[in-house]
Design a protein around this nucleic acid. Structure first.
Lengths: 230, 230
DNA sequence: ATCATAACTCACTAGTGAGTGAATATTATT
DNA sequence: AATAATATTCACTCACTAGTGAGTTATGAT
């Protein structure tokens, strides 16, 4: 049991072990919360799946709510930073002439890529976020974390649609978000509806369509309003 | 206390009283489930708000799950029938030449009208359905009840877009549903984001934009694909 | 080896959950 | 008024919840 052997495989440090355990707990909690929501999961459920005593969760995270928040926070920063970056990059590249489709590509594709490339953990987080966004426990977090990116997107959309009414843009964003949340939720409903033709976890399929679909929608409702006013 | 007085105000019959009590329970459960989900609500919560002993809910509805299902079922038939009717009407009126926008108007506006005109009860049901559609408890119900209308809509969409690929249509529907669910959920997020310019419960605003927005999206992704194949 | 600290478990508390069956009240029927 | 049926409450069970504090084991530093 080479306990002290300084073999090629270096033994993880204390801090690393601690971090690894916390990640394991967060991963499991993420998965379970994403499926059943805050109230549908008990600390024991999580602990059992991790293979530790349930009070260990109270040791690492003070209480259930803190654990939930930690799950939320862990990956939130990553998506937000990436998307903010992508929007900034696009804004700069567009040189004052952004398009709706370009902005949506930056916003949506960046996010979808994360779920495509990020493996199961990120997919679970997507579902977790979708679930959380529709619950009292998650609502505050949603505002706190995601408002800045969303408002940045809207800022660019306004530039792309200088004649559009502001509420049209907000409602357009509302449609975009709804569609995105449902995608991330991976309910499996489209699989059944389409008899297996489409798959809930086919983010590539979504990425191939979503920005264009939504951009067309934006143009439609914003142009219409413009006509009404003339 | 004119208990047996045959006054102008006719005393409700036993059956009527029973029905009224059940409705009261269903209304309250609907509201609470819509906010907190299946696991976030206890029978005691519901009973307290109705003002009865909590075991009375076990008397009327066998168990918690049965109550949940009853909430789901009560209004499901109504939306579904109305929308199915609207789609049939539109299909007939279009005389073999339906448009995407026309089909979506029939599907969406009919539903939105229900929430607009149906009062608080229907609004709560919308939120309940949105919540349920994203939970294991509601998923089966979703399929069981809503599949027929959805497939009817898709049938008409296919007629309107004869050259479109089937998966494009399913994904388009997916976007529509996501946006609709978020609307019904009334999370209040758009209110905060827009600093009060838009309101979560402004279904009229959604109705004024949604079908057109989505139709444009459909046309965009379906035409594109068509071009790719030529 | 020893000691301190961190990691983890255990036994337990206090409270809550859904649900049951008996007891009581209310109403309807005759 | 008596009786039957229905509605409602009550007292209770059993399982389970989050969380605490003491206790135990492992680990790392000296």
């Amino acid at each position: 049991m080479a306990s002290k052997a300084k073999s090629a495989v270096k033994r993880p440090s204390k801090a690393e072990q601690r971090a690894e355990m916390m990640e394991q707990i967060l991963d499991t909690a993420e998965l379970l919360f994403s499926k059943h929501g805050f109230h549908g999961v008990t600390l024991k459920d999580v602990a059992k799946q991790v293979g530790v005593h349930h009070t260990l969760l109270n040791y690492y995270f003070d209480d259930k709510r803190t654990l939930f928040d930690a799950v939320f926070a862990r990956r939130a920063v990553v998506t937000i930073d990436k998307r903010m970056q992508a929007l900034d990059d696009y804004d700069r590249a567009a040189g004052g002439q952004p398009t709706v489709e370009g902005a949506l590509h930056a916003f949506l594709d960046t996010d979808l890529d994360l779920y495509i490339q990020g493996g199961e953990g990120w997919k679970n987080y997507g579902a977790f976020g979708a679930q959380a966004s529709n619950s009292p426990e998650g609502a505050e977090f949603m505002d706190k974390y995601f408002d800045p990116v969303v408002l940045r997107l809207i800022e660019i959309l306004k530039m792309a649609l200088p004649d559009a009414a502001e509420d049209d843009i907000f409602w357009g964003y509302h449609f975009v978000t709804g569609a995105l949340m449902l995608t991330l939720a991976r309910t499996g409903r489209i699989d059944k509806l389409s008899h297996g033709l489409c798959h809930s976890d086919d983010y590539e399929a979504v990425k191939a369509r979503m920005a264009r679909f939504m951009a067309a929608g934006f143009r439609e409702i914003c142009d219409q309003r413009k006509q009404d006013r003339t």
